[in-house]
Amino acid sequence: MSVSAGASTLAQRPGQAAVSRLACLLVQPLLSRVVRKIARNHLSLFARLGPHRSTDFLIDPVELPFALHLRPDPQALVLRAVPRDAAPRAGAVIRGRFLLLLELLDSEEDGDAAFFSRDLEVAGDTEAVVRLRNALDDVDGSIAEETAEIFGPPGRAILARLRRAYPSEPEGHPFP
């Protein structure tokens, strides 16, 4: 089963395609560094993915100018920024606000609750999504902070700013 990216993302404004391509070029070197470091530090993550190490995931932070293509294969790890109109067909798509995705990555938010409240959208192979979720949930500490650390003080400042830029969840604890 595979799904394409476009279904529910915002319609492109004029010039957006160019912005998106430029943004992808800019972030790619950072993504490559990040993913190599995370993979080195958290080897056990791959075991929980089972057969879905070779699945193509499309992670779509709705307000960013690009999506992320992840193939969590430890032998040939892929994490790349892709313009939405050029995204590969993915086995599974995970879509939501950027900070929500960041919080899910760090288990600061509960994935089931985010899904039930419709803030998080998944499509395609549900087992692949469940495995990725469980694999990430078994990681101790904060992947977002580890990522920020790679870039030293500027990285930490950007993360702090990002967190401030979003209002906190209005609903209190979201557990169903």
Partner: peptide, 8 residues
């Protein structure tokens, strides 16, 4: 459920 749920 997630660690977030367990913690809370």
């Amino acid at each position: 459920r997630s660690k977030s749920y367990v913690r809370g």
